[in-house]
Design a protein around this nucleic acid. Sequence first.
DNA 1: CACTTGACCTGTCCGC
DNA 2: TGCGGACAGGTCAAGT
Length: 288
Amino acid sequence: MPELPEVETVRQGLERLVLGKKIAATHHDTAKAFPNAAQEVQEFVIGACITAVERRGKALLLHLSSDYTFLIHLRMTGQLVYRGEVSYGAGHPNDSLIGKLPDKSTRVEWRFDDQTHLFFNDQRKFGYAKLLATPLVTQDRFLATLGVEPLSSAFTFAAFEQLLAASPQRNIKAFLLDQKKIAGIGNIYADESLFLAGIHPQLRIEKISPQQRKRLFDAIPFILNLSLTQGGSSSHTYIHADGKKGTYLSFAHVYSRAGEDCKNCGTPIKRIVVASRGTHYCERCQPR
DNA sequence: CACTTGACCTGTCCGC
DNA sequence: TGCGGACAGGTCAAGT
């Protein structure tokens, strides 16, 4: 569920909380979550400092002073949570923080030399944190094929139209979810941007009018930025780097609102399956 | 080759 | 209350 705004919010939190910290130890539970050899970790991680925190699509990059980089993907339920020495008691204003760490969902733990910790928690074990030599990061199979960043200056209407023109037969929702076209849109923001653009999620791209294309092009950065200003969307598994929750879903237009009234016209929001994903839309505002 | 589908996991919620 | 089944979405390998 972490999509671009959630991952970017985590990135900003990590930049504030762990930039410059020196790694004293690491611990991990499964080879899948952290596939590197112990020898490699000992040599390039222990004693190294975090020099930069970058985001590409939904992936995070923790650059180290050793010229190695952790490529971290949260996938569905991954969380990166920093804990200092402070412990919050019940009833404290920060009681929205998830509980004591590490817990049974902890996959990786980084301990810094000031005795604070960064935890990578992942209930469903889809995510990973892998160590790569920094010059090889851009060659990673996932990163190398990622599409345009929708909040960058490279995402122009001309570029968007060119991408659409290359997939005339595809339905628009599957296109939006394809990270090789545009990087960072997931199920929530695909549904929300299609609602704002008034486009049916199953509409084939060749059937989308020039006006609708422009509305969709405008809606994508609009909705991503709106969510970003709210600190990302919230579900029971998404959490900030400091352990607090986001708020966006509380005012989603269609996502997760099946059966509820459309905020535009009052028609009940429908839920269908498109590209194997739950898909929410208003059949009146988003005609086929 | 472009695209679609099922698998990967585990916790939660709903109906019986 | 317990239990089975649907559901949650990001990406990749396998299939069309």
